[in-house]
Design a protein around this nucleic acid. Structure first.
Lengths: 193, 193
DNA sequence: TGATTACGCTACCTTAGGTATCGATACCTA
DNA sequence: TAGGTATCGATACCTAAGGTAGCGTAATCA
């Protein structure tokens, strides 16, 4: 048996492997013209494929954006062996840096806003994007669910509010302030270095 | 000259005084069916007026919502003589309580999201809603602009993120946690009572 | 009574999310 | 090489909602 289990590929024409291209085109389109004007039609054109192909793979624009954000964030960089303060600090900076990447902050704020009045999208956002990172953080930080949810509300909420009100990601100095504010409130082992 | 300058009423049929009714209908409609489904048509019908009358008074749905929020928040309750910690604490609780009122949180999160990809609306939101309170806070707290903006990002961002992700306003225990986290980071005169 | 302005109504335009259909194409298997 | 199957591109279409135009009517002042 080979290393990868033979996929037992289903019959028929296989899907073209262009999810990565769609994600790239989505972020660059959102970055250039904003979330609302980045229509599915334009994203498809930017990718070089048909709009119907997008809808064959994602059930809605929101679901596409969520997958795009999952791809942009990737796995949470939770170093083993780090203490709680280090983990929180690096997590905040990782989220801030990713949101600051071109298109990511706009896409995040945009899909978040759509979710406000779309329960189905809110479920997708919560289950596919927030929950995996929340569970990983609960485990790594050894904190209960409600504390981690509060942590996410503070960090993501603050960063998105800045992005939404100004159109620009939060500058490093303010991210430092965010870290300085959050850590003492959570850390059990405040290292006064 | 009399106390109030004679309005020198312009000729023609005067406007019916129904802004208050429109605001009430807007919040209750948003509360019942959500921000996106609360169309201008439905808000007008709920008020008992024509959609075109709404558009004669507000240039866009976003502008209507912003005025509606201004009416809901009213003037900031900044007590004279209170120290900085008291002012911050009461401000946070005032914002949290107002956002928790039926329809206000949904409307706020909704218009905020729309503003993400609409620079004109962002300008309205920033100038008409955020700036007045920001200036009042700068004065009352004696803090520079960037610190007050950071304060608003944290407080409003956190509350809206909770509202957007769960559909419910933040519970009192978490508002307490927000106060407990924010105060030590800002307060110059931490009163260890 | 006339001028002026707001209101209600209807019709309409535009954008954008999302769906249906159909011929062409790519891949596997017999 | 032929057949089966599923994807792709293209086109046309539906629907909801923001927003506008025009017109007759109602209210107020001079």
């Amino acid at each position: 048996m080979t290393a990868t289990t033979p996929p037992a590929r289903p019959p028929g024409r296989p899907r073209a492997g262009l999810d990565a291209e769609v994600f790239t085109a989505t972020l660059s389109t959102v970055h250039e013209i904003g979330y609302a004007r980045a229509t599915v039609e334009r994203i498809a054109t930017a990718t070089g494929i048909a709009k119907t192909t997008i809808y064959r793979r994602w059930p809605s624009k929101g679901a596409l954006i969520v997958d795009c954000l999952l791809d942009a964030f990737g796995p949470a960089p939770l170093r083993e062996g780090a203490d709680q303060a280090e983990l929180m600090s690096s997590t905040i900076r990782w989220i801030a840096a990713t949101i600051a990447e071109p298109g990511v902050g706009d896409a995040f704020a945009g899909v978040f806003s759509d979710a406000v009045s779309d329960p189905a999208l809110r479920e997708i956002l919560s289950a596919r994007l927030q929950d995996p990172y929340r569970l990983a953080l609960q485990d790594a930080l050894d904190e209960p669910e409600n504390r981690v949810l509060f942590f996410i509300d503070v960090v993501v909420g603050t960063l998105l509010h800045r992005m939404g009100m100004t159109g620009e990601p939060m500058v490093d100095a303010d991210v430092d302030a965010l870290v300085a504010m959050v850590l003492p409130h959570f850390a059990r082992d405040v290292d006064p270095t």
